[in-house]
Design a protein around this nucleic acid. Sequence first.
DNA 1: AATCCGTGGGT
DNA 2: TACCCAAGGAT
Length: 367
Amino acid sequence: MIQWDAATIKQFQDTLLGWYDAHGRALPWRRDHAPYHVWLSEVMLQQTGVQTVIPYYERWLAHWPTLTDLAAADEAAVLKEWAGLGYYSRARNLLKTAQIITQERGGQWPTTAAGLKQLPGIGDYVAGAVASIAFGEPVPAIDGNAYRVFARLLLIDTDIRSGAAQRVFRAAITPLIPQDRPGDFNQAVMDLGSSYMTAKHPDSAHSPVAAFDAAYQQGVTDQYPVKSAKKKPVAKTYTALVLTTPDGQAVWQQRPSRGLLASLWTWPLLTGDQRAATVPELLTQLAAAHAITMASAAVLRDQSVGAGSVTHVFTHQHWTVYLRHLTLAAPTALPANARWLPLAQQTLAEPTLQRKMAAYYNKNKTD
DNA sequence: AATCCGTGGGT
DNA sequence: TACCCAAGGAT
């Protein structure tokens, strides 16, 4: 690992900030440095691309313009607004933190990274980003960009997926932060990491900090950062039941409040490939899995949907979902975690998996 | 420390 | 197809 002297650090800061002043991106969350705006954007941007976030960010602020507005929201409304962004605990934690600040702290944000990190959903990265950008604290905000940029500049070969990475990079980056512009420094690093110093096909030669880039100077950019491989997703198979009445009402089922797609709504899912199961078998499993009971005598029609399946890849699971369509004469009573709503309902939070299933159903439905 | 938790885009 | 990547955090 390379250590810079004080003069080099000053030159690096001036070069990086000069470039940022001239070429930094004009993003919606950079219109001001309000902690609500900085925090919301940083949470949305976790593991998520800028172009995906922008429309969600704008819609969110139209819905809840202030932290006080958000603190008064229902969790169901928050999840509905978040639906499609993924990692849904982020949305639940946004609401929790808004309530803590509004109701327990009199609307006052902690102004240090250490204080911010106590709040739900705020870890080392978001704490550093909000503390530096909104409150001017000279702390690093170490995200994937910072890992990549400084691994190359300083030839840091610590595996960025290892437990030691946070400590090693924090020690390396902290001395480089300018006391007067920590927020701009951290944002400049992010812009650098998403323009010249990208993961794939970097343009190190034209980077404004090429002169400080040891990996580029030595022709070893492709060796940094060191990042161990992920393991591949586990394959799982399910069968979704499209349970409708003749007038187009369908059974919607809310997933448990913890775990994958927590609290979101889908058509009821049974484990395994149930394309060959009989109607009584399907209903037995439906009762066991979701406490939804209905008599097989009430089923007017039993149809498979399409010849294939819906596939959806999560971080750790690769799902294959088959669809069965059962038509009932009339709605039956449902437990608290299920509802009769139109097939194309607009009121509940649906994950992308459900949107894919609905698209597949609409394309393949028989009548 | 290792695992869980989404999604869309690129190659 | 099967990877990898993108402004991580909680348990």
